[in-house]
Amino acid sequence: MKNIKSIKTIKFLALLFVSSIAFVGCSSDDDHGDDHDHEEELITTVRYTLTNGTDVVTLEFQDLDGEGGAEGTFDVSGPLTANTTYSGVIQLLNETESPADNITLEVEDEGDDHEFFYTPTISDITVSKDDLDEDGNPVGILTTLVTGGAGTGSLTIELIHEPTKPNDGTSINAGGSTDIEVTFSIEVQ
């Protein structure tokens, strides 16, 4: 008798278990948006503006149709002046929207998960980061760029998502995944 009873209990418990999970399984969300408004959230533009008084140089990369399609375009407004200290600001924009969406603000909000890296090939140029995230580590939206002697080369700007922070200041050792990587040809004269 005892055995039969325990069997019944087990069967009952099994049934309870089965039906409870079945309900959980069925209640999964299946929300349905059918408006077919496939608005894209892109970063179309990287604009690095360097200012020293009236000496303003902008480095801009623009790819309005995103990955694929037409290739992006690079635009450098002019040469940098030798032995000059520029204050730099970087902007990430989505220009498919009007007015353009400023994505730099999102990076700023999540500063502890992001860092900009500036890598010039002209050894005289130094870039220092002037802003800090909530943990006191640099973010790199605001920078100071100091030029030395004349020369030509390139400047690569990277935005790394989830880098190791703090790091040694180079993107190679910062890990993370690359959200932005653009390389501008620059000239110092």
Partner: peptide, 11 residues
């Protein structure tokens, strides 16, 4: 290879 705002990608 195509160049995007994220850098180079193989297509």
């Amino acid at each position: 290879i195509t160049t995007t705002i994220r850098g180079a990608f193989p297509v």
